[in-house]
Amino acid sequence: MFYDTTAHELLSYRPATPVPADLSDFWRETLDETARFPLDVTVERVTETPLRGAEVYDVGFAGFGGHPIRAWYLLPREPRRDAATIIEFIGYGGGRGLHHELLFWSAAGYPHLIMDTRGQGSSWRVGDTPDPGSSGGPQVPGFLTDGLTAREDYYYRRLFTDAVRAVDAARELPSADPARLVTTGTSQGGALSLVAASLHPGVAAAMPNVPFLCDIRASCRAAVTGPYPELVKWCRTHRSLADRAFATLAYFDVACLVPAAQCPAHFGVALMDETCPPQGVYGCFNVYGGPKEITVYAWNGHESGEAHHLENQHRWLTREAGIG
């Protein structure tokens, strides 16, 4: 099992998923299709809030297909000089939550955009964004298998595009510096932070923590908990469609996308993670195209570094990336 593999050994691991020959064309066409819809950014100040250290804005923008996406924007009353704007994406099943739930970055003086996740937000943190594009086809409860047999209909085509559009939206927000946009997130959010860094040239740095959707075929064989078993169950039921499903997933495997990334990245990995196995994270880290570092939590599972990791991210952002 990979849990017996050392971090040093994992540094030589390479994902086995072949990169589709038309991967770049697929994503260029997808993003061009969505670019036909006006971004339509709306920013409404929230006046009823217990927060005193930040102004809170309810943000909207048009994501994939022009579908409305919600977000929170927390703007510090005393921002850091030349502060980066942090764009955060949420883990599987969660939404943007309540506006006072994620306060670290704004408390540290950084403008902070928190994107809601279409169709999610009913498992552990509330969300406010529906998914009008759901295929309605047979799927295991969750999102990983929604539209799995056709790349054009697959759930993550919509969500990945939303993440790229969130970067465009951040550029239009009050006090945001378009040259200092940093993506971050944990698990699914970590995957989205890497997707945005790979598909949007305006991302200055990425901070993915235990990212999901990395080296998907190997990860779903190794994972014990979380979303990957949904995929295993789907393939177990739809025996004749498994190869077709993995052909679709190759277009959404983050390890196939990140060689195109150029900005610096700071990864977090947990060597006892049974939800997003470390070999998948390392597979993605090892092929990442830009400058990169990784913080290893040898004895942790999917909780990873938690508050310790926030401190490590902040240190990296200010001292290493030099854009904080």
Results as ranks from 00 to 15, higher is better:
151 R>K: 12
319 R>G: 11
81 R>M: 11
27 W>A: 07
92 Y>E: 14
115 M>H: 11
235 C>I: 08
255 A>P: 05
134 S>G: 13
130 P>G: 10
185 G>N: 02
89 F>A: 13
254 V>S: 09
223 A>G: 05
302 H>M: 04
309 H>P: 07
212 F>Q: 05
118 R>W: 01
281 V>H: 04
217 R>Y: 15
282 Y>E: 09
169 A>C: 04
133 G>P: 12
12 S>A: 14
88 E>W: 08
155 Y>C: 09
96 R>A: 13
86 I>T: 02
274 E>Q: 14
81 R>T: 12
247 A>C: 13
307 A>C: 06
215 D>N: 15
155 Y>E: 08
118 R>F: 02
120 Q>D: 01
184 T>A: 12
172 E>Y: 01
212 F>I: 03
9 E>G: 09
75 L>V: 05
83 A>G: 00
98 L>S: 14
221 R>T: 10
279 Q>L: 15
198 S>C: 01
286 N>E: 05
95 G>P: 06
272 M>Q: 15
162 D>M: 03
243 D>Q: 14
79 P>H: 00
111 P>M: 01
1 M>V: 14
289 G>M: 02
72 W>F: 08
6 T>I: 10
142 G>S: 06
250 A>Q: 11
308 H>A: 13
15 P>A: 07
220 C>R: 13
307 A>G: 09
144 L>M: 11
164 V>Q: 04
163 A>D: 07
207 M>Y: 01
77 R>W: 00
127 G>Y: 02
209 N>A: 14
303 E>T: 11
81 R>K: 09
62 A>H: 12
51 L>T: 05
225 T>V: 15
194 L>R: 04
67 H>D: 14
26 F>E: 00
182 V>K: 01
215 D>A: 15
197 A>I: 03
193 S>N: 05
176 A>N: 00
321 A>T: 02
278 P>S: 11
75 L>S: 06
31 L>E: 02
269 V>F: 07
270 A>R: 06
238 H>E: 06
96 R>E: 09
22 D>Q: 11
290 G>K: 02
121 G>E: 01
97 G>S: 07
273 D>Y: 07
156 Y>Q: 13
87 I>P: 02
133 G>H: 15
24 S>I: 11
173 L>I: 00
260 A>D: 15
211 P>M: 08
277 P>K: 08
133 G>K: 13
120 Q>R: 06
275 T>M: 13
186 T>I: 15
103 L>F: 03
101 E>V: 12
